[in-house]
Simulated assay, not measured.
Amino acid sequence: MATISVPALPSVTTETSTSAARLNWLRAGLLGANDGIVSVAAVVVGVAGAGAPVGPVLAAGGAALVGGAVSMALGEYVSVSGARDAQRTGQTARAARRATEAAGADDIAAAYRSIGVSEDAARTIADELGRPEVRDRWVAAEEDAAEDDVVSPWRAAWVSAATFTVGGLLPFLATLFVPESVRVAVIVVAVLVALAATGTTGAVLGGAPRGRAALRVVIGGAAALTATWLAGTLLGAHAL
């Protein structure tokens, strides 16, 4: 006897898929913002640590901001395009298999009886689902629902670029408006606070412990800033 799965209710499936898609976009946005904050701040702090005046620091920060946003967009587009092609290929194969599957009415009725449907109701459902026009519509509906889960590469690209830019603007603007004597300290504090906020937000969305998530990104950001500042300081002392 062939194995037949009971179809899920479309309304429940659509609602769940939509909620999951929104959470995925929010998480992707937070990751892009984190990357922008850390990447641009690391460049700014590293160049400032080398003892460069505000002009070169701003130039380096601006280049990191633009280049990072473009790189994020390109990387997301290429990555998501490949994943989408693979997903659609799998969907087409599954739909073709379901469309050609010769499931008998007895198999379908047994599947519904297994979840508690009465004999008469299960037989009626099986007879209806066994009709060719109903089966074709069922396959088409499943394909449409699966298509909604395929992420758009263009949307992924601009979301990544936009969130990276928003995050990167924080250290860049701090460089622009903060006095040189306290520039590095202000950037470090602002970056760590922003990372704590994004880490906490991501934990709330994912249902994870907030403190642990925030601590992870703060420690990672602090390590990146420390490493680039030390590198800039050492290079500046020997090369400038």
Score class of each variant (00 low, 15 high):
residue 100 T to P: 00
residue 146 A to G: 14
residue 109 A to K: 02
residue 149 D to Y: 00
residue 118 S to E: 13
residue 180 E to I: 07
residue 180 E to V: 09
residue 157 A to I: 07
residue 182 V to Q: 12
residue 81 S to A: 14
residue 176 L to K: 13
residue 98 R to Y: 00
residue 121 A to W: 00
residue 142 E to L: 09
residue 93 A to Q: 11
residue 104 G to Q: 07
residue 139 V to L: 06
residue 126 A to N: 12
residue 89 T to G: 15
residue 139 V to N: 03
residue 137 R to G: 15
residue 177 F to I: 15
residue 92 T to P: 00
residue 172 F to Q: 03
residue 155 R to C: 03
residue 133 E to G: 04
residue 175 T to G: 11
residue 147 E to R: 02
residue 129 L to D: 00
residue 186 V to E: 06
residue 107 D to P: 02
residue 144 D to M: 04
residue 151 V to H: 10
residue 121 A to T: 11
residue 155 R to N: 07
residue 79 S to N: 14
residue 152 S to R: 06
residue 165 T to P: 00
residue 100 T to W: 03
residue 126 A to K: 05
residue 185 A to K: 08
residue 101 E to L: 14
residue 100 T to G: 02
residue 183 R to F: 05
residue 120 D to G: 01
residue 162 A to V: 04
residue 182 V to E: 08
residue 106 D to E: 15
residue 102 A to W: 01
residue 183 R to Q: 12
residue 173 L to R: 10
residue 183 R to I: 06
residue 100 T to K: 11
residue 181 S to A: 13
residue 117 V to E: 06
residue 159 V to A: 08
residue 128 E to R: 15
residue 161 A to S: 14
residue 122 A to M: 08
residue 80 V to K: 02
residue 93 A to L: 14
residue 96 A to G: 14
residue 161 A to W: 01
residue 122 A to G: 08
residue 139 V to I: 14
residue 124 T to D: 13
residue 162 A to M: 07
residue 149 D to N: 11
residue 167 G to L: 03
residue 143 E to R: 06
residue 138 W to Q: 14
residue 127 D to S: 13
residue 112 Y to T: 02
residue 165 T to Q: 03
residue 101 E to D: 08
residue 88 R to H: 09
residue 95 A to N: 04
residue 113 R to W: 10
residue 134 V to E: 08
residue 130 G to H: 06
residue 105 A to G: 11
residue 112 Y to L: 05
residue 105 A to Q: 10
residue 124 T to V: 12
residue 187 I to M: 04
residue 124 T to A: 12
residue 153 P to A: 13
residue 161 A to Q: 03
residue 167 G to C: 03
residue 87 Q to I: 01
residue 153 P to C: 13
residue 156 A to N: 09
residue 135 R to N: 00
residue 144 D to N: 08
residue 121 A to K: 05
residue 98 R to N: 00
residue 111 A to L: 04
residue 109 A to E: 05
residue 85 D to Y: 09
residue 100 T to M: 06
residue 159 V to C: 04
residue 116 G to D: 09
residue 81 S to W: 11
